[in-house]
């Protein structure tokens, strides 16, 4: 992409965000109610809560849960996906399990985890991971099915050991699939984490949302929600996209 077209794109997208905020502000002014604050009120509330209140603390706690669930589901899901993609037999046998777990509502896993293990941190992380593992596994299975047979033969004929075959031949072919499941994973996981917090934790964004819901404080509900959206978008821009660019640097 050329520089001018990047600039055009940024201008268009920036303009589109401004229009959305404008519509929201107009709606808020027409409604003239504390139940629909203006964008300015929300962002002032966010800044105040960040400076004087507990926003950063809860943000940190939630981020840690998202991070833990993300890594657990990513590693286990990748292992399951590669194994099922490489073995026809295992894939046939365990495909119904995958379909089953994929269709269990997040709320059910969360409730069951809390009932069985108690309202503890491990139960919360477990419930979120369990929701995401099947998604990762399915994406990675697709990747493992498309592994290049020619390159695998090359690796075999040059007697590459298992470690080299995995890290230099197999995994690089899976990077695009990993990037896809990382992105969709982040988006899904943080939403489930909020539910987990609302139902059984005494801190984190989800807990705060619950608190402000009881107070009917829409300004703070939106302030917390937007704070976290900003954090997730920052991770996407500053971590996921640069990593993706790095692993794709060999492409033309």
């Amino acid at each position: 992409m050329t520089d001018t077209s990047t600039l055009t794109r940024l201008a268009l997208q920036g303009g589109s965000i401004v229009i959305l905020l404008g519509l929201w502000a107009m709606g808020a002014m027409v409604a003239d109610s504390t139940l629909l604050p203006t964008p300015l009120e929300v962002f002032t509330g966010m800044a105040k809560e960040a400076n004087q209140g507990e926003l950063l603390h809860h943000l940190g706690v939630t981020l840690m849960r998202v991070g833990a669930a993300f890594f657990i589901s990513f590693i286990i899901g990748t292992a399951i996906g590669i194994t099922m993609g490489r073995s026809k037999l295992l894939n046939t046998v365990f495909d119904p399990w995958l379909v089953l777990f994929l269709n269990i509502p997040a709320l059910v896993t969360i409730i069951l985890a809390y009932v069985w293990f108690g309202l503890i941190e491990a139960a919360a992380i477990f419930a979120v991971s369990l929701n995401k593992i099947p998604n990762v596994a399915i994406t990675m299975r697709e990747g493992a099915r498309t592994l290049d047979k020619d390159l695998m033969e090359m690796a075999a004929s040059f007697r590459l050991d298992r470690k080299k075959t995995l890290t230099k031949v197999i995994l690089p072919q899976l990077y695009p699939y990993m990037a896809a499941s990382a992105r969709s994973g982040l988006a899904l996981i943080w939403k489930i984490v909020l539910v987990v917090e609302l139902l059984g934790r005494s801190n984190g964004i989800g807990f705060q949302l619950h608190l402000y819901f009881q107070l009917f404080d829409v300004t703070m509900i939106l302030a917390y929600a937007f704070a976290f959206i900003i954090v997730i978008q920052t991770i996407e821009l500053m971590v996921l996209q640069p990593v993706e660019r790095h692993v794709n640097r060999w492409r033309r």
């Binding site: 020619d150 390159l151 033969e153 090359m154 230099k168 031949v169 690089p172 692993v247 060999w250 492409r251």
Partner: peptide, 10 residues
């Protein structure tokens, strides 16, 4: 091999 079969990411 008939085709080079180099690893494109290396």
């Amino acid at each position: 091999f008939q085709e080079p079969r180099l690893l494109p990411w290396l």
